[in-house]
Design a binder for these strands. Structure first.
Lengths: 253, 253
DNA sequence: AATAACTGGGTACGTCGTACGCGATTACTG
DNA sequence: CAGTAATCGCGTACGACGTACCCAGTTATT
């Protein structure tokens, strides 16, 4: 098929390509330095503000210089994700109490996404697992390694991280809307947009109406609301685990 | 703060803005026509190929003409999402058997994402709910309306759709890799990339190794694999529901 | 018949990622 | 120690992108 006859770069081996070459002058910058600058910009102004030119300007060089360190912007985003994920700071190994371990993962992951709002918006289908993401994976899957087949473990861990992602995304969206409108959450419920008001009025959307009128646990702050949903998710996950004698928990193996 | 002193377009009221104006010549095209063209392109060449110029060329006009029908490309993407979602074809109301209803939602949603691969990659934080998405929401939440507070219902439905999204995304990624490499899934396991081989060899990633070596239910095809995970998720959701007398199920209220 | 609203569409601006090429610098090879 | 080849930082240039703006032509209201 003459489809790129070269040996092939598999597809995304950023993590294999060595940072420093054997020959040539010493590089003036580093991948970590560039990645950190990119993260700094994305934190402050969003992911799309972290363009190659902008990042280069941040570290005081030309845009094309970055391509000496990173093959493409997409790969740089992969580096950014792993760079941020490295802040997670999880224990070396699961404690044996799966519920406590997953709670830890969930809460720190949420905090991470609130600290780096662009994390939720990264294109998903890139199967790029850097060292920090691998650590997270090892810890999370390891916590659930209680006799289930690996496929089931993956499903359960996916449910947890899916919840974390959704919850953080919602929280960020609300926060954004508060910032733009100047109103707090309580005040926004009444003053909703014309479209929402129409939907509430037409009587065709009872569940949506309940979401608008009843939801959001109005007496909880964001943290409490997250924990509440998290407990529900953990209960669900528990149902997928093999039964345990109920007293023999957190047994250090 | 002098922050846009106008009355404000709330933020995304595509669904309120009337298609036809009162005065002026009859428009030559329609929102539906433009949206359909965009979906056609995105299906064949990906979401980013559906640029304003490309879409305009598809229907035989200039790029700027589209802005007579749609305020921005982001809004057009919202229209595309709802246009695709409208294919879902769900019953008018939940049947009373929540498990059957959610199974229906999950399988059709998966099929929809396989038919429109770009759906999984749409930027999430847009809280834009068109009529088709509202139908889906009403049906899904309604199926779970069994006495729980609305917040719990939202969490459970979120878990389900999160699973569907993840599973579809994974399936699409594998399909893409098969297409590019020419190998089938079975053959790819051994011939994995250098990075994966390194991770397997270093012994530091036991769970990742299990994922690579044991997962994917090698004896199942994609459909079976999806259903298998789906049953796990539904079991989990069941645990979050109020207990039922075990025999009194699918009782038509 | 006059007017105001709207049409399709061309041109132009500022942004993006990045292919390519340059002269200078450095490490390996003889 | 000279020669060579790799790699450096970085400027220029190209082809996309979304869309602001302007225009002459068309139509429903006055």
């Amino acid at each position: 098929m003459a489809e790129g006859a070269n040996g092939g770069t598999e597809h995304a081996d950023i993590w294999m390509r060595p940072e420093r070459p054997a020959r040539g002058p010493r590089p003036a910058y580093s991948r970590a330095q560039i990645t950190a600058a990119a993260v700094r910009i994305a934190d402050a102004e969003g992911l799309e503000a972290a363009s190659m030119r902008r990042i280069a300007a941040e570290i005081g060089t030309g845009a094309m210089s970055l391509y000496r360190y990173v093959p493409s912007r997409d790969d740089l985003v992969d580096l950014m994700v792993d760079h941020a994920t490295a802040e997670l700071d999880l224990p070396d190994r699961p404690s044996g109490d799966w519920r406590a371990d997953l709670t830890l993962v969930a809460e720190r992951s949420r905090a991470l996404r609130l600290r780096h709002p662009w994390l939720c918006g990264v294109e998903r289908p890139r199967g790029s697992f850097g060292p920090a993401q691998l650590r997270l994976l090892e810890f999370g899957l390891g916590a659930l390694d209680l006799g289930l087949p690996i496929d089931d473990i993956l499903v359960l861990f996916g449910l947890l991280m899916g919840y974390v992602d959704d919850a953080a995304q919602q929280e960020l969206a609300w926060r954004e809307e508060e910032r733009r409108s100047g109103l707090d959450r309580e005040a926004m419920m009444g003053r909703s947009g014309a479209y929402v008001r129409k939907l509430l009025a037409d009587g065709e959307h009872p569940m949506f109406a309940r979401v608008v009128k009843e939801a959001r646990q109005p007496h909880m702050d964001a943290e409490e609301r997250f924990r509440y949903g998290l407990e529900r998710v953990l209960d669900c996950i528990q149902a997928g685990l093999p039964a345990v004698p109920d007293d023999q928990r957190s047994s250090r193996r």
